[in-house]
Design a protein around this nucleic acid. Structure first.
Lengths: 200, 200
DNA sequence: ATTAATATTGACCAATAGTCTAAAATATGT
DNA sequence: ACATATTTTAGACTATTGGTCAATATTAAT
């Protein structure tokens, strides 16, 4: 039988948590693997048992964090029984923005990686292994169910995520928090336009 | 008097050209400074005379390449005497997309960095030292000249560039070139919308 | 030609990445 | 409960890369 691991307390999780802490505090470049293993209280060999290198641990973090965020959003969405696909997408985007604004550290870490988090093949593999519903699945299903004709739904979703990403990124361009609510109406108009018009 | 340098043949340029070649061929991670200096036929010390580290040389490359691209676009724009700001911006975006699609290596290198190329403070400094007209200046001037009321022109431009970036990025998501012309009409509608509606 | 200033080199040291084998911990069979 | 097999962990070790610096070469100025 496999060893029973306490959630978030095994060495792999400790490495992930420590890496996230150090990446967000000091940045990728100034965090060495030695730093990570020292702070996580494991030996260096253990790191290489679980991860290929620093960049793999980063990709896994992006995948886990953003997947968690979208899954929470999807859970909330289900409580609200929204029919229209545009409104569903906007609900999710809105939820994600609000969460990211509440957690600036997380925002800083994944805002520039949201789209690569969906398209990067390493990251995508982790999404799939996760097995849970993704915004991708919701979107594709929604397009079908609502008989919306998009030339390339994947691309449309990609552009929506890019817009989300850039909206969030705005708020870290400036040191003080941006009045993000002012941007929302425009963003949502654009999304409605994208899905409604069938331009793509 | 300063040493007369043959354009593109001094050690600094050789380092820049070599770095770009290696970065695009092997990626940032698999290119060491030793690789760069070996291929450029200069000593390691020389590298550190001109650049702080690998990341500075990357930032300089992004700034130079994208600045060149936008300046070429601006030059073309002037030959065409387009009055309307939306149309000017679309002209430039269109030019940039076409050039990037023609040069996939360059595209791969800067597509994900176009926005950071405008906002990253290191990169921006290089833009300013360059002193030439930038899309940023054109846009701000255009907004004033045309009495367009945007809440935050810088943010509007940022989002337009993000959209350009994501459109271009699409074409490298797939191994075969994408029919990018199909996406253009939508992109241009969105830009017209952004500038015209005064939503931001 | 002599001196001053600047550019260049590559040996050298430091930091970090990544490997590997021995030991410890855990699981499994009897 | 004990012996054996399997998995996990440690950290010393090697390899690679980053970054420094004093010596040398090149160029400019008088």
């Amino acid at each position: 039988m496999k060893k029973e691991k306490t959630e978030g307390n095994d060495k792999e999780s400790r490495l992930l948590n420590t890496a996230f802490k150090l990446f967000t505090e000091k940045g990728m470049k100034d965090t060495s693997i030695q730093d990570i293993v020292d702070n996580a209280n494991v030996a260096k060999g253990t790191f290489y048992l679980y991860f290929k290198d620093k960049y793999e641990i980063r990709d896994i973090l992006i995948a886990k964090k953003s997947s968690k965020l979208f899954n929470e959003a999807l859970k909330e969405l289900r409580k609200n029984y929204i029919e229209n696909l545009s409104d569903q997408v906007i609900f999710i985007i809105n939820y994600v923005i609000d969460e990211l604004v509440k957690a600036p550290t997380l925002l800083k870490f994944i805002s520039k990686n949201l789209s690569s988090g969906i398209y990067n093949k390493n990251v995508r593999k982790i999404y799939e292994e996760n097995g849970e519903d993704s915004i991708y699945k919701l979107f594709i299903k929604g397009v079908e169910d609502n008989h919306i004709e998009l030339k390339n739904p994947e691309v449309t979703l990609f552009m929506i995520i890019e817009l989300l990403s850039s909206t969030c990124f705005n708020s870290i361009l400036y040191d003080e928090p941006l009045p993000i609510n002012e941007f929302k109406p425009y963003l949502y108009d654009t999304i409605r336009n994208m899905i409604g018009s069938g331009n793509l």
